[in-house]
Amino acid sequence: MNTSTPEVQGHGGTQKTQFRQLIKKMGSLIGLIGLSLVLTFASPYFLTMDNIMNVARQSAINSLIAIGMLLAILTAGIDLSVGSILALSTVMMGIVVVKMGMSPIIGVGVCLGIGILLGWLNGMMLTKMSLPHPFISTLGTMNVARGLALIVTAASPISNFPTSIQFLGAAFIGPIPVSFILVLVVYAAFHVFLNYTTVGRYIYAVGGNPEATRLSGISIDKVLIIVYAISGLMAALGGLVLVGRVNSAYPLAGLGYEFDAIAACIIGGASFMGGEGTVWGTLIGSMIMAVLRNGLNLLSVSAEMQTVAIGIVIILAVYIDVLRHKAAARVKA
């Protein structure tokens, strides 16, 4: 069963409808392949092993944050605080490990722990304080966490982490970056979590119809708190990879990362209305963004133009999705 593609219409019907369904499921994947083909022709360097691994490495942080974001979006919510959580959790790790000289294990624990804690607070504010929308609770946390990150570091970066902490972000196994392997493992775990556990199914249900879900005996509050705690955790994990890559934790890290994460989910087919979106779609969404940035770099497009391009891609991707939905709503078989 895979309810994350809920709009099933041709049920083993004609071959034509099966084909159409396949296209529907594969929409963003086809986009990714098309984009890659174009870039292969445009730049001879694009399809080299080095460059592919480079893209894999560059997409890792956004992929990790986006999968947490996906949970929030599935419940018809949003998590604006991920970038700030990343910053605060990594600088705290820097303080514990580099400044106080504690063991890297404790440092990693502090980093992930702060991520979970802040995410949990987001969830508690949303549910127990009945703030009307996660936009508000996470916007608050976004500012608080960023401010705290600047205060505890006196606004300066912390460097010289032990190599063990850099492992996730910097190490390779053969030609493959560890960070990308981490992404694959995490995504596989989320796939199982969302499709084959009760809490995972409840996440889809809450986004689809909260009232029906509540009357079915499911504690919505619990589900939401879990969702935001996981989102916080994934932000901190993304931070861990970032620290490894740049060997530094800095209070302005992760600025604007929430938008890249949201974009990855949306390009990957998640619906802002909740209840719809898949793990693999999100991975593809994140890859599309990384490939696009990489390609534009290879073609020496300026950073400013790149921002413009990403903006256009987001709107186009969602527009295509809207068209697909419209086509589904008024099928002329």
Binding site: T3, P6, Y196, T198, R201, Y204, A205, L215, S216, G217
Partner: peptide, 28 residues
Amino acid sequence: QGLILMHDIIVNSTLTGLKKFCKFGYFI
């Protein structure tokens, strides 16, 4: 209040009873 309209028959009809289909406590 009854249905999650965007989801399929399987999801809707097993929503309240989902726990009973679980192996090892959590996996459906």
